[in-house]
């Protein structure tokens, strides 16, 4: 599934919630159901700096697509990580780089987009794009 289709699906899911509490209950559920990260990747090197909660993000590249796993010690942050992984994992570096992150404001998580919240959403997004950029460079080097 393309990134736009995935984000549209997320927007549809979130449009069912009338109030913030339902939305957060869902985020908590998503946080609790985030696929486990391999323990060996919960290392200092994979820690995303500048978050109030600790967030680990691990990326693997199979030559075509990037695969992400993540974990956090805060459940809401894990829920957000789940949304980002659903959106970007299994996509090509180019697709990740050219994708828009508008959907996050559309589902009403804008408060997490402010840099002062330091909850890791912006840092996670930045890190995801950085990985994509690095893997794209690797891909191009191998081609040439």
């Amino acid at each position: 599934m393309k990134i736009e289709d995935r984000t549209q699906a997320i927007i549809n899911e979130f449009s069912n919630f009338d109030d913030w509490m339902d939305k957060y209950n869902y985020l908590i559920e998503l946080g609790k159901s985030l696929p486990l990260i391999d323990e060996q990747y919960k290392v200092e090197n994979n820690l995303i700096p500048g978050c109030q909660s600790r967030v680990w993000l691990h990326a693997e590249f199979d030559g075509e697509n990037v695969h992400f796993t993540a974990d956090s010690d805060a459940v809401i942050t894990k829920g957000i990580a789940n949304l980002l992984i659903r959106t970007f994992s299994g996509q090509t570096p180019q697709e990740i780089l050219s994708s828009s992150t508008e959907f996050l404001s559309e589902i009403g998580l804008t408060e997490h987009l402010s840099p002062t919240r330091s909850n890791g959403m912006l840092s996670m997004l930045k890190q995801i794009k950085m990985y994509a950029l690095a893997f794209k460079a690797k891909q191009e080097m191998e081609k040439s």
């Binding site: 957060y24 908590i28 109030q52 909660s53 459940v75 809401i76 942050t77 909850n119």
Partner: peptide, 10 residues
Amino acid sequence: DIHPYDAGTI
């Protein structure tokens, strides 16, 4: 054992 960040957000 709720993370302070989670609690604060709510």
